[in-house]
Simulated scan of single mutants.
Amino acid sequence: MIDNDLLVIGAPDVEAALSGREHDIMDAVQKAYETHSRGASSLPHSSFLRFPDSDKDRIICLPAYLGDDYQLAGVKWIASVPGNVPKGIERASAVMILNDRETGRPTTVLEGSIVSKQRTAASAALASKVLAPGAPETIGFVGCGPINVAVAKFLQAAWPNTKKLLAFDLDPARAQAFGEDIGPFFNNADFTIAASLEELMAASPMVAFATTAINPYIDNLDSSPENATILHVSLRDLKPGAILPNHNIVDDLDHVCRAGTSIFLTAEETGNRDFVHSSLGDILLGNKPVPERDGRPIVFSPFGLGVLDLAVADLVQESVAERKAGTNVASFLP
C-alpha cells in the first residue's frame, strides 16, 4: 500500500535530534563528501532567486541526491535576508523536502536552517582537522553571527584544548554577544575582541570567516602565521591576491566557482582554475595529498553542498523515528 502521509519535523525536534552530536554530524558530513567524490551523487547547481530592489537578499534552492548507503533525494529552500538581524530575526530561514527514491513521492518536510547551520559548521571543523598542521592555540572568528557561533561549537569539539579566541565584527556589540554565546563551549579559553581585522589575522593560526560580505575586502594573507588554516565559509571575503598565492581547497570546484565567490573572481582574473589544489573529498579519499606545509596558508572555500544537508537530515530522521517525534499529516498526498 502506498503511504499518503507526510511527516513534518519542526525546529524543536530538529534541535533535539542534533544537540550534542557534533562528532556524529562531522562523521555524516565526511561520509557525504566521500560519497560525492566517488561520484555516487547527483548535485545540480544551486538556483539563486534575487530581487531587483536588493543586492543582498536572496533565496537559494539546493536540490541533491545522495546514493550508496543513503539513497536520499531532496531539496533545501533557504532564504538569506541580512536586514532581518536588526529586527531581532535570524538572517537565514529554510525548509527541506525529502523524497522517496523509488517513488519520488515527498515523505518528510523539516525545518532546514538548523540543518544548514550544523552542516556548514561541521564542514568547516572537518576541514580544519584534515588541513591544519596541528592543534591551534588561537582561533580567530571574523563575523560574529549565528554561523560562526555554530562553527565555534564544532571547532571546540575538534580542538578542545584551544587556549585563546579572538573575534572581530563591524558591530562591537555583536562581537561582545558572540563571546558570551561561545563561552560555554570554550570554558578554558580566553576570549578577546580584536581591535582590528589585521590584529586578528596576525595572531590567529586558524581563522573562520562567516560574514555577509558580497564584495571581497582582504587584499592578501601576508600577515597570517605560517601554515595558517583559513576557513573561508562566507566565500566572498578574500580578493584574488589573497587566493592566488596560497593553497586552495574547495568542496566542489564546479559549484564554488560561480556566484561571485572569491574562487570565481580569481578564476576570472587568471583565466583558469589551476590555483585550486583539490576538493576536500578527494583528500579524504586519499586521491590527493594535503598541500605541502611550506609556510603558505591553506584556504578552505566551501560553497555548501546539498548532499551535506541530506546527510544531516538523515540523522534527524533517524532520531525522530526512534523518539516517535514529529507531526504526521495523514493523507497529505492524493
Rank of each mutant, 00 (worst) to 15 (best):
Q30Y: 10
A32W: 05
A32Q: 11
Y33F: 15
S37I: 09
G39F: 11
G39W: 13
A40T: 08
A40R: 14
S41K: 06
L43D: 03
P44K: 06
H45Q: 12
F48V: 10
F48S: 01
L49W: 12
R50D: 04
F51H: 11
F51W: 05
F51K: 04
P52E: 10
D53L: 08
D55I: 12
R58H: 05
I60A: 11
I60R: 10
I60Q: 01
L62V: 08
A64H: 10
Y65S: 10
L66V: 11
D68Y: 10
D69P: 00
Q71D: 15
Q71V: 02
Q71P: 04
L72P: 04
L72W: 03
L72C: 07
A73P: 01
K76H: 08
K76T: 05
S80Q: 13
S80D: 13
N84P: 08
P86M: 12
K87Q: 14
K87F: 06
G88Q: 06
E90T: 09
E90I: 02
A92E: 13
V95G: 07
M96Y: 10
I97V: 15
I97R: 07
N99Y: 12
D100T: 12
R101G: 03
T103M: 11
R105P: 01
P106C: 11
T108P: 05
T108K: 03
L110G: 05
L110D: 00
G112L: 08
S113W: 00
I114Q: 07
I114P: 02
V115S: 06
Q118V: 14
R119H: 09
R119G: 02
R119T: 03
R119M: 03
A122D: 06
A125L: 01
A125P: 10
L126I: 13
A127G: 00
S128E: 07
K129T: 15
V130D: 02
L131E: 00
P133N: 07
P133F: 06
P133K: 13
G134A: 15
G134H: 14
E137W: 05
I139N: 06
I139Y: 05
I139F: 05
F141H: 06
G143R: 00
P146H: 06
P146V: 02
N148E: 11
N148A: 09
V149N: 04
V149F: 03
V149K: 02
V149I: 15
A150Q: 01
A150T: 00
A150G: 03
V151C: 14
F154M: 04
F154D: 03
F154E: 04
L155S: 00
L155Q: 11
A157F: 05
A157K: 04
W159R: 07
W159G: 05
K163N: 11
K163G: 03
K164L: 09
K164E: 14
L165E: 00
L166K: 07
A167F: 10
D169S: 14
L170T: 15
